[in-house]
Design a protein around this nucleic acid. Sequence first.
RNA 1: CGGGGUGUAGCGCAGUUGGUAGCGUUCCUGGUUUGGGACCAGGCGGUCGCCCGUUCGAGUCGGGUCGCCCCGACCA
Length: 493
Amino acid sequence: MAKELDFLTKRSVDYSKWYNELVVKADLAEQSDVRGCMVIKPYGYAIWEKMQRILDDMFKATGVQNAYFPLLIPKSFLSKEAEHVEGFAKECAVVTHYRLKTNETHDGVVVDPSAKLEEELIIRPTSETIIWNTYKNWIHSYRDLPLLCNQWCNVMRWEMRTRLFLRTSEFLWQEGHTAHATREEAEERAQQMLKVYANFAEKYMAVPVVQGVKSETERFAGALDTYTIEAMMQDGKALQSGTSHFLGQNFGKAFDVQFLNKENKPEYAWATSWGVSTRLMGALIMTHSDDNGLVLPPALAPIQVVIIPIGGKPEQMEAVNAAVAPIVEQLQQMGISVKYDNADNKRPGFKFADYELKGVPVRLVLGARDLENGTIEVMRRDTLEKESRQIEGIAEYVKQLLDEIQENIFQKAVKFRDEHIYECDNYEDFKERVKDGGFFLCHWDGTAETEAKIKEDTQATIRCVPFNVEQTPGVDMVSGKPAKCRVLIARSY
RNA sequence: CGGGGUGUAGCGCAGUUGGUAGCGUUCCUGGUUUGGGACCAGGCGGUCGCCCGUUCGAGUCGGGUCGCCCCGACCA
């Protein structure tokens, strides 16, 4: 069962290659033989499952319920909301037939031409249309509102170029879809869910995010407002990690979802949708990991503590096993997930490197030397610091250490981000510096023209108008026209 | 869909003027090891991406074709 373990490419040498190697070598995922698709391996999926569980509880705490809607969407649904089609039409997979048959030479199968569908079905790129088509039947009165549904599912967008977790043709996500009686309530919900995402990112993933609202050109297809959380990766690029959309009455009107209000007057329902995907895995990896491999926040690590024995002779191993057993039990009773790896076909050095690669937050090492002294070695993954401690009280110490690591990697990420956020008022200066990454806070005149020029000149885009930035009047660095606000500009994934 | 690469063992690669396939690693067996990626010995594993051509003979030369990777356009 021993695995190939090559040294990782260094982050500073080739960030892209480092990321890709890390995902594969840490056993998170690999590219599938199927075009543009990804296989998430058990270790990677265990992290995603933890994320799901926590997010799901957070959603439910706001009154959201889970449901499930079909994978296939009739083509005609997609054309009902004009902007929405335009946004997604280019990347939809289409089902045209429902049957295969054996070919003439009987050594393969072909599509049976007689099994052509009258109306083609689209594999969902997102589910607004099919869900609002369903909501039409569920919503009649203001008493049916708000309607708050979420679904965990897969979606497909036929991407030209894919990268593990960051962009794959098929990906896993959750999409929440809510219907409301008033504009205010819907807008509030869109912002509320963004707060949930930001809270999740910072508290559990230890990934600091900038919250804000998208510019018109970067908005979700069919939305009136798109709220976003933007995280900074270690190469200074931005990663859009979650979005929440205020959809107005666009889908209510497109799918004729009307309800009778208290005054017995018909009104179109107001909508939001919001989602996060397995892309969060990419954010997690690229925020914390180092040249030794993954660094996982304790809150999401499938294995929080690994214990490695240093053995030798069988009677020595027995003594170590006996000493480790009560430690394992104590940790488990504290709700800490612990793995005791006493496999005898791998040497300790190999295990050290392997669990570091996999990002296990705390490592305990116990050998004959420790047994004599009543000590145990503790290593924390975030700083790679080792110390020798008394076995007595080690479980309590580890519990507290896990909290400390969670906080430390968050603070480290905050520090890195804050050091790479710049206010900038000079376009020439901006063009020169944005190549090297970082978030730039710049005055913007609010026009799509300057936005397009920035993108053309530098590949950087307006990530959002941040909420928490003090807005002072100024002039647009490109056009020189008066600017309403400072926006966050960066190159992104 | 443009521009550039590349296809030989699970993975990483070599293969000279054309002569029938090699290295490292993984994996398996046995032994010795075990406080930072062990060592020794033996073993399994390949229609050289695919098709056509040149030739007595093609991994190698020519033509075609397909896949993959990187850089753009598109995107969570």
